[in-house]
């Protein structure tokens, strides 16, 4: 297709962190770019941009997805939870507190994606085994921590959320 040809914009409605947004988007706009550039929610990061690293992980209708590999038009009618939706009323989420307290981050680039994968795990499985935690973040790469403190942080957040922290 010639790039001079006009492409019809597509109207979409997406609920992000509980707020409904209506926009008209170009079909090729990726969900991660919709979040970052249209909505200015820059907590979701773009890392590898090729479905490997998981820095762009958000939840779509409760399932973790890599938002660099989903079109914004595919999310039409859907509910997104991004890292900005974790804290409530100025209070950090248990995962955010635990990542901070257990040094589950160094540079922080992978952290939003890590927490969105961990959040999906804890929603489905409040008492995960060490293996469950490893499997839950197998699609999130960290180049700083060596993962050990991330595992500790997720374990601690799980305990906190269960009420036995």
């Amino acid at each position: 297709m010639s790039t001079t040809e006009t492409i019809d914009l597509v109207p979409i409605e997406v609920t992000v962190n509980g707020q409904l947004y209506r926009r008209e988007v170009e079909p090729r706009l990726l969900l991660v770019q919709f979040l970052r550039e249209e909505l200015r929610l820059t907590g979701t990061h773009i890392g590898c941009d090729t479905t490997y690293c998981g820095a762009c992980t958000v939840q779509l209708n409760g399932a973790p997805i890599k938002s660099c590999t989903v079109l914004a038009v595919q999310a039409d009618g859907g509910e997104i939870l991004s890292v900005e939706g974790l804290a409530k009323d100025g209070e950090l989420h248990a995962l955010q507190k635990a990542f901070s307290e257990h040094h589950g981050l160094q540079c922080g680039y992978c952290t939003p994606g890590m927490m969105m994968s961990a959040h999906a795990l804890l929603a489905a499985n409040p008492d995960p085994s060490a293996k469950d935690i490893r499997k839950a973040i197998q699609g999130n790469l960290c180049r700083c921590t060596g993962y050990q403190n991330i595992f500790k942080a997720i374990e601690a957040a799980a305990a906190e959320l269960r009420g036995d922290g």
Partner: peptide, 8 residues
């Protein structure tokens, strides 16, 4: 792949 890819 991983959880995210398996979701989609």
């Amino acid at each position: 792949a991983d959880n995210q890819v398996r979701s989609r």
